[in-house]
Amino acid sequence: MLFLNSLFGYEARRKRLLNKVPQGALYDFLSVPFPSESTALSDLSIVSVDFETTGLNAATDKLLSVGYVSIDKLQIKLSSCYHQIIHIAPQLEQQNVIIHQITDQQKSQGKSLQVVVETLLKALAGKVMLVHYAQIEKHFLKQACIELYGVSPPFMILDTLAIEKRKLDQRNIAYDPQKLRLSTLRHTYALPNYFAHNALNDAIATAELFLAQQKSYGITLKELL
């Protein structure tokens, strides 16, 4: 991993792709350098992101909605919060609809995948993305970019689940993987219960968990990745 990072580091990949893509949202995203890995946590600009999807497979399932909120200087800025339902083809909306509590009416107000992804890319430019369990957001975002632009750009991702897993692994004792669920972890960190599950609430919930996980705000980005 260390070897790969040095060879295909975020910055190297960003610069390489910047020369390949045409003007547009992706180009704009790639034009902004990533923060240096030596940036202290307290100076870091982070965007906490959550996706609701029709399933776990990025190749066959679809993105239903996107929510995000930014964290600046360790403060979650509700002024930056964003939540958008994505308009999808009717035949694909059979499953999962109840889980995510997205109504037909809301769906009719949905925006196209392109509009939503471009908004997200704009918010993420030059920043670190924060998620809980990176696999979903990472793969769905990659898939969406390939669909829209034919390439997948690099994203700097922090994962609250991975951070916690590392902590538990260090202690070298067996644990129930259920302990790593977002709601369970929030309980562990004495954060308030929350009930309304949508992409934005989960993004805020993840952001709060991330702040609670950090014992010291002096650590650098490198130690978190």
Binding site: L74, Q75, I76, K77, L78, S79, C81, I204, A207, E208, L211, A212
Partner: peptide
């Protein structure tokens, strides 16, 4: 008002 909030830990 809610959208003016900064959440801090």
């Amino acid at each position: 008002v809610v959208r003016e909030i900064d959440i801090c830990y």
